[in-house]
Design a protein around this nucleic acid. Structure first.
Lengths: 350, 350
DNA sequence: GTGAAAGCGCTAACAT
DNA sequence: ATGTTAGCGCTTTCAC
């Protein structure tokens, strides 16, 4: 009895608390169908009759209806957001992938939520935690090395996880990228093939950048295997042409007879080219140089920079494809990996 | 009567449809308080008694509770997401700002939702539409020029809007950035001060990049005002060292007597430096060069590149600050703008 | 300071 | 093909 009274009183009060926004109900009313039909139309237009469809379309247009994805996400227990976690978009490699992925996901009306680890596993862990609280359609991580806690969280959540930019380790489920040690091997083989017998790897920030380290390791072991002299010089600062210049100076001092250099990436290689010019070291005659990344300036350098081009955008597109497929119902096969390869660009510097 | 029966039947069926996840209710039960107290604790810990607070904290810890931000966003009609829309993170300038903003917002547990316009107003419009359907805490747009529809949507939504990387036009509300024409003016004055009397502006993609055009316009008008010869050469492709090299070749052909060049950015300037080297043009003796951006390689070039450094990270940090302040209740003053300035770096190339 | 209750706008069973 | 219904997990009045 008391309940009935309460209901009678409270029901008509149903005031909208926030700003008057147009909801699916308004569209339904306008189109003279039920809200669920509108919902269905929005998600699978082909499942609705042509007449209902067109009147819904008209109502949406007229009312300028914008669906509330937050509400949708809550109801469906999964939002149309994909969380992408990279070391930093300041890094051109990851910027490329993020951009490609955003463009591809956008077409499926999926949003990109971005996070930066700054090469910190603990930070990554926090980012994953927050990411999960958005009930994302997928989580994309960079690399294969994560904290135990991160793995646990991801395992407990039932969200698909894709790891990018690294292959060859223990993966959570799906990985898209390439083998960085193979990059190093390819560089070494290339230099050796060009007749170089005194090799050096110049690396920046290798204590944090695991993938740079893998390239270095591949390089060194391939050189050793070929019975060629090889060493490595590194600097803890992030990659930059300045670090490259410093490293070259140091390298020449320590190894005056070096005749082939591979760099952890093209930023470093660019610095090497500049410093060679300053020191009067002829490239490639006395010293061959190869980088990694094929950055915007690499082809235009003087001499043009030999380098290895990873396919950052392909990684992004493939990741997007997998996510879209998964949302369409296709299961991700367990433990698959997609090798996006890389290309060695033989230019003037080697 | 019938209703009562129905209720009696349906109530106990309350099955969880999706994966068993720990909710605020579980935490409440565990801590022996009501859900609303948990909610309050999460948002304003100081408003909850110490004893309740600590037992809630313990429960959260024990259960490993992760709040569902989607549900929170729906209930509060505003999510802890900030939509950032830039031309592309492939562009180092915007990558810098996005990274800085993400880092700053992260500390306040705000998420970044990223969108790329690729310099397309129509695309921006779509991105804003989708962005709004997330009920974001704020929307950040690049530049001051947007479609009418974009403006209308943004006006209707009550979300705070911040425009970045451009000052000096009609703004929606708050703008953070600097005056690009002043960059052009500063470059021209600098070259003139260095004794140059035959100036040229080399620009890439200026039909799409409004801000590059503003820099160009400022440059040209400042030179004219000073009574100095000036012209402009452009190429529709996106900025790159290759385009820079091409533009320089073209420039020298059309204006053999040019002695001072400003470039739409450092990518182009780098190409100019390389091409000068190839053509045997002495920099800065015969030709002074200044760029824009102070990119990673600019200081290490040979000769080091004079350039103008915008503060992309400051723009990001300021935007984040405003958003955080706004969420704390501080109103955004209407029509304010924050000038983050720029710095001219006089190096060896001029 | 704490709790009860009423939604936020949508999706997804299920029934028709 | 369409409608009915019951939540999704949280925030937010409003009483106490």
């Amino acid at each position: 009895m008391a309940d009935q009274v309460k209901e009678a009183i409270s029901r008509p009060q149903r005031r909208r608390r926030k700003m008057q926004s147009i909801t699916m109900m308004d569209v339904a009313e306008h189109a003279k169908v039920s809200p669920s039909t509108v919902s269905l139309y929005l998600r699978r237009p082909e499942a609705v009759s042509a007449s209902a469809g067109s009147s819904i379309a008209r109502a949406i247009d007229k009312l300028n209806y914008v669906p509330n994805l937050v509400a949708g996400g809550l109801a469906a227990a999964s939002s149309r957001a994909v969380s992408i976690i990279v070391p930093s978009v300041r890094n051109a490699f990851f910027a490329e992938t993020v951009a490609a992925m955003q463009t591809a996901l956008r077409k499926e009306r999926l949003q990109v939520i971005l996070g930066h680890t700054e090469y910190d596993e603990k930070e990554e862990e926090d980012l994953v935690r927050t990411a999960l609280s958005w009930a994302p359609a997928a989580v994309v991580l960079t690399g294969l090395s994560h904290s135990e806690a991160t793995r646990k969280m991801l395992a407990k959540a039932t969200v698909p996880v894709i790891e990018i930019w690294e292959l060859g380790g223990v993966q959570i489920n799906t990985a898209i990228g390439f083998h960085h040690d193979q990059v190093g091997i390819a560089s070494a083989k290339h230099l050796i093939h060009e007749g170089r017998r005194n090799l050096l790897f110049l690396g920046a920030r290798m204590h944090e950048d695991r993938r740079a380290r893998q390239r270095c390791d591949g390089f060194v072991s391939a050189a050793r295997e070929a019975g060629v002299k090889v060493d490595m010089v590194q600097h803890p600062a992030p990659s930059s042409a300045e670090v490259g210049a410093m490293l070259l100076a140091e390298a020449i001092e320590m190894h005056p007879d070096v005749d082939g250099i591979a760099c952890s990436n093209d930023h470093v290689a660019l610095g090497v080219l500049f410093e060679c010019e300053r020191l009067g070291i002829a490239v490639p005659d006395r010293l061959a140089v190869i980088g990694f990344g094929d950055l915007s300036f690499s082809a235009a350098c003087n001499p043009s920079l030999s380098t290895i081009r990873p396919s950052g955008d392909l990684i992004g597109r493939e990741a997007a494809r997998l996510i879209v497929d998964h949302m369409a119902g296709k299961e991700l096969e367990r433990d698959t990996s997609i090798d996006t390869r890389f290309t060695l660009l033989h230019r003037r510097s080697s």
